[in-house]
Design a protein around this nucleic acid. Structure first.
Length: 581
RNA sequence: GCGCCCGUAGCUCAGCUGGAUAGAGCGUUGGCCUCCGGAGCCAAAGGUCAGAGGUUCGAAUCCUCUCGGGCGCGCCA
């Protein structure tokens, strides 16, 4: 609709340029929905923007523009208002056409080809497989999945990816923690380091490890004695413990325990995400990067371009040359590559896989890593703008007014699974997407569970269920109707509440496109709430199952279209649209 | 100390790329159930857009500073 109006203005502006009133390049034409209904439906500020160029007052220029505006049946009136706005008032036919279009296009209504098939990757969650997903990951999961759905709906070729950190120290610590819990079960050892993984899930894993492998990984108490009177700091203790574990078990058995922990936890993560309605096209292994020599290759490219240097025994990347605060180590003194080195190779790999654009959804606590990754891409000769990082703030759980504390240190946190069990996946998915991602999210469990209009999820689902209920009653009253029957009598919809509802339906495609292109999924839940409100208002004021068939069919078409758009929107959010509550 | 994000109604938040008298929901107050699901609807009150400058026809929106809150500043990931 916006584009159609913009085209009209474009033609008017061109006419003025030809007649010499305007000169120079016309600016991009801006059309926006009018906020105040008295200003019509859409408005453009074109005359205000061109006034200086034309050397005349905006209102006079607006008059000239309007005079040259081509006629269009969907435009009922054009007015000049305020300082020089050009306001468009749509003809009722435009609204009726929307209802028909929704019914014709069904699930396709709201989808577009704006993305032109461009290859985009969305990488999200990517939590270390060192424990179950918690409520913080849940927000990234909901946000990332919805973002991907939105991009797909707007014509992008989307790939969803999870980066599995299956290499590195954190996984080693998990393996070590698992082994210690295992030894604890065997009665060999009871000293558990403060900063190892303390969650109860590690104990559960130890039980399974023993069940499947017996005492294969048992060692004598004395072999671990050196850990008892270890003098270094906590981190050094873990490193010493891991080294000792490797030594005592041998590389093969160490790998076995390591892989056991990794696989079981990853399996749990996959299950949690699947039941949360989150599915991936690719689970990308960090370890595969080093196995394929991708890290070496990336570092070599940087080396050849002169972006690396040695200092204090380590190899550094001069990221400050590309806007970072400080240079970063890529190879440690001990010869191991850093996580950052993997990340460089990983992002290079993404671009080499042919993605025009790569979107990473990270927790906001990682914001400091953005400049260095972008710096690396630039140093590798890639356009850093092809990487977009969406930083998702944490979610804080409330039970009514009580704030639920969660502590990672003790390993006692609310898992995503627990959240879904308590409030259901529909509410969880919806609430997670309710706020702009850079906004802190207060997640009230009581509200999410409540079955009342306070709860936006139920409010929207209820609207859908109500429409289905009306349709069920058709048969009971001996009436018949099928979608599209009202197409020829849509002009019978004249109630202002019906008009408001139709206008709302008309803006849905714009909302989807804006949400996708601006990376603002939260627009969708807000839109759906407004839509549900328009529906409930209409429902309360207008009887649908009236005797007169022409009017009834038109109204039922409008209801059907409303239900369809609710379904389409909820589906992008991963929320169900029940036919009865 | 430096960097990033946030600050809008009592509460939780919208406000699209700078546009017209800053909007919703909850809460509060007051109405509406012989009627398709009252799990709902309608109305009212409620604002120095944290504060101060600046940019311009126009600023909640862009720039600078101050204040307040969150996060980050590892040869961890």
């Amino acid at each position: 609709m916006k584009q159609r109006l913009a085209k009209l203005l474009q033609q008017a502006a061109t006419a003025l340029t030809e007649s010499g009133v305007l000169s120079g390049d016309p600016p991009a034409i801006q059309i926006e929905r009018a906020r105040d209904p008295r200003h019509g439906d859409y408005a453009s500020n074109l005359a205000l923007m061109l006034a200086k160029q034309a050397g005349m007052p905006p209102r006079d220029l607006a008059t000239l523009l309007v005079e040259r505006l081509p006629a269009d049946p969907i435009v009922a009136a054009v007015e000049i208002a305020g300082p020089g706005f050009i306001n468009f008032r749509l003809a009722p036919a435009a609204l009726h056409h929307t209802v028909t279009a929704v019914l014709e296009q069904g699930e396709g209504f709201g989808r577009s080809r704006a993305g032109g098939g461009q290859k985009v990757q969305v990488e999200f969650v990517s939590a270390n497989p060192t424990g179950p997903l918690h409520i913080g990951h849940g927000r990234g999961a909901a946000h990332g999945m919805t973002m991907a759905n939105l991009l797909q709906a707007t014509g992008f070729d989307v790939q969803r990816e999870y980066y599995v950190n299956d290499a590195g120290r954190q996984m080693d610590i998990l393996a070590f923690s698992l082994w210690l819990r295992y030894l604890e079960r065997l009665g060999v050892w009871h000293d558990f380091p403060e900063n190892a993984y303390r969650g109860s899930y590690v104990r559960d894993l130890a039980v399974q490890l023993e069940r499947e492998h017996g005492d294969r990984f048992r060692v004598e108490r004395e072999a671990l004695a050196l850990l008892e009177d270890f003098t270094g700091d906590d981190d050094a203790l873990l490193d010493a413990g891991i080294a000792r574990m490797r030594e005592l078990l041998g590389e093969e058995d160490f790998r076995l325990v390591h892989a056991f922990g990794l696989e079981r936890i990853l399996e749990g993560i996959r299950e949690d995400l699947a039941s949360f309605g989150v599915h991936y096209d690719c689970w990308f292994s960090e370890r595969s990067l080093s196995e394929q020599g991708a890290i070496e290759r990336a570092l070599e490219t940087l080396e050849q371009a002169g972006h690396l240097y040695r200092k204090e025994g380590a190899l550094w990347f001069r990221s400050t040359a590309f806007g970072d605060d400080k240079d970063r180590v890529v190879v440690r003194e001990n010869g191991e590559t850093t996580y950052f080195a993997s990340d460089i190779a990983y992002h290079l790999n993404k671009l080499e896989r042919g993605f025009e654009r790569v979107i990473d959804v990270w927790g906001a606590d990682h914001h400091g890593y953005v400049p260095r990754v972008k710096a690396a891409l630039q140093a590798l000769g890639k356009d850093p703008a092809r990487l977009e990082v969406l930083l998702v703030q944490f979610a804080v759980l409330y039970r009514g007014n009580e704030r639920l504390q969660m502590s990672t240190r003790s390993g006692e946190f609310v898992t995503l699974r627990e959240l879904c069990e308590e409030v259901g996946t529909d509410a969880a998915r919806f609430f997670y997407c309710l706020r702009r991602c850079e906004q802190h999210l207060d997640f009230d469990l009581e509200l999410a569970k409540s079955q009342s209009s306070d709860n936006p999820v139920y409010y929207i689902q209820y609207a859908h269920a109500r429409i289905c209920s009306v349709q069920r009653q058709l048969g009971e009253k001996g009436m018949s109707w099928k979608p599209g029957d009202g197409a020829s009598t849509m002009d019978r919809l004249t109630d202002p509440r019906e008009t408001a509802l139709m206008k709302r339906l008309m803006t849905y495609p714009e909302v989807i496109e804006a949400a996708a292109l601006n990376r603002e999924p939260h627009l969708l839940p807000h839109y759906l709430r407004d839509l549900a409100n328009d529906f409930h208002t209409c429902y309360n004021a207008v009887p649908f199952l009236v005797e007169e068939e022409a009017l009834r069919n038109a109204r039922l078409d409008l209801l059907q279209a409303t239900a369809q758009v609710i379904r389409n929107g909820l589906s992008l959010l991963g929320v169900s649209a029940p036919e009865a509550m």
